[in-house]
Simulated scan of single mutants.
Amino acid sequence: MRTPRFAFAESRLLPDTRIAGPMPWVIAIMMFLMVLVAGGGLALAQAARTMGGDLANRATVQIVEANGDFREAQAKAAAAMLARDPGVSSVRRVSDAEMATLLEPWLGGDALKGDLPVPVLIDVELRPGNQAARLAPQLSRVAPAARIDDHAQALAPLTKLLAALKWLAAALVLLMAAATAAVVVLTARSALNTHRQTIDVMHLLGATDVQIARLFQRRIAVDALAGGLLGLAGAVAVLVVLGKRLAALGSELVGSVALAPWSWALLGALPLAGMALAMLAARWTVVSALRRIL
């Protein structure tokens, strides 16, 4: 339990500036950037997982043939062959209505009503452990005009880019955490130098280095939490607005860049982690400095 003299010393040692002082605002800015970068990294990781799960075992077979009768015959033969293959989980031919919807933005609504040769598309879902390239020789025998596109292979460069950006975001979060700790260290050292005489008096009154360090910890913890919550609120507002803008695009690929509920919980815990980091940095700084002084 603190004595009245120690309570008075605390108020003199660290005046109750909080939001009026510079450190909470610096921490708020760092937390704002940290949450934005962390949110972007988590969204990219979620997008990479979504694409990997949805496309890892999928492929598309195209029947590109100018003659309509030959195209239809090869499409039926290819679908029958794929359905019999033990490595194929499901086979679905894209309907004419779906093809018209896909081509309408480029060719107009009457694209399938004329003589324009439109390829036949067959969606193929493979069983785990099977590769789409294995089907190519069999397809070429029953449907010479068939082409097979492996979705995972086509999007591999994009997946690698997302993974690289995810790790870059993690590195930036660590750098900003280190910068936040540096701000706390500088603030604690400045307070030690400013109130050196008060600290000497507290030592004469019997206060230990750990007790003095706790005074710094409590005050810096409040400042760090206040700044962290302020930065979190601003970053969450920005992330929500960006999420709505991305959802309005209507793209499945862009729409996969979203935050899961557990990601929001992780972002919400960042101010608490920042407060703990600030407390540890302040304690280490004060105790180390006082041991060198005495």
Score class of each variant (00 low, 15 high):
Asp85Gly: 02
Phe32Ala: 01
Gln46Ser: 15
Gln217Lys: 00
Pro261Gly: 11
His203Cys: 06
Arg291Leu: 10
Val254Gly: 07
Ile19Asp: 03
Arg283Leu: 02
Glu252Lys: 04
Gly109Glu: 14
Val120Gly: 06
Ala28Asn: 05
Asp96Met: 09
Ala226Glu: 08
Arg127Gln: 13
Val240Cys: 03
Gly109His: 12
Phe70Leu: 13
Met51Pro: 07
Gly87Gln: 06
Arg58Met: 12
Gly231Pro: 01
Ser190Leu: 14
Glu72Ala: 15
Ile199Arg: 03
Leu55Asp: 09
Leu168Cys: 13
Met34Cys: 09
Thr159Leu: 12
Leu55Tyr: 14
Met23Gln: 06
Leu186Asn: 14
Gln153Ser: 13
Leu107Val: 11
Leu253Thr: 09
Ile29Asn: 06
Leu162Ala: 14
Ile293Val: 10
Ala7Leu: 10
Asp16Glu: 13
Gly39Asn: 00
Ala191Glu: 04
Leu277Thr: 10
Asp69Ser: 13
Pro137Glu: 07
Leu239Arg: 02
Val142Gly: 07
Gln138Glu: 14
Leu249Asp: 05
Arg292Ser: 10
Gly255Asn: 11
Ala289Gln: 11
Met34Ala: 15
Arg291Phe: 05
Val118Ala: 08
Leu294Thr: 11
Ala78Thr: 07
Val286Arg: 05
Gly228Tyr: 02
Met81Lys: 04
His195Phe: 09
Leu168His: 04
Ala152Pro: 00
Ile220Val: 07
Lys166Arg: 15
Asp85Cys: 04
Pro271Val: 00
Val201Phe: 02
Ala20Cys: 04
Ala213Glu: 00
Leu225Pro: 06
Gly129Asp: 03
Val222Met: 03
Arg5Thr: 08
Thr198Gly: 12
Met31Ala: 04
Met99Leu: 15
Leu126Val: 10
Lys113His: 13
Pro157Val: 03
Ala224Arg: 01
Ile63Thr: 06
Met81His: 10
Gly52Met: 07
Leu126Ile: 10
Leu277Ile: 11
Phe70Glu: 12
Ala75Lys: 02
Arg196Trp: 10
Leu259Gly: 10
Thr180Asp: 00
Leu44Ser: 13
Ala48Phe: 02
Val120Asp: 03
Thr101Ser: 12
Met99Asn: 07
Met99Gln: 11
Gly227Met: 08
Ala48Asn: 15
His151Met: 13
Ser11Tyr: 01
Leu14Lys: 01
Phe32Glu: 00
Leu172Ala: 14
Ala163Gly: 13
Met1Cys: 06
Gln74Asn: 11
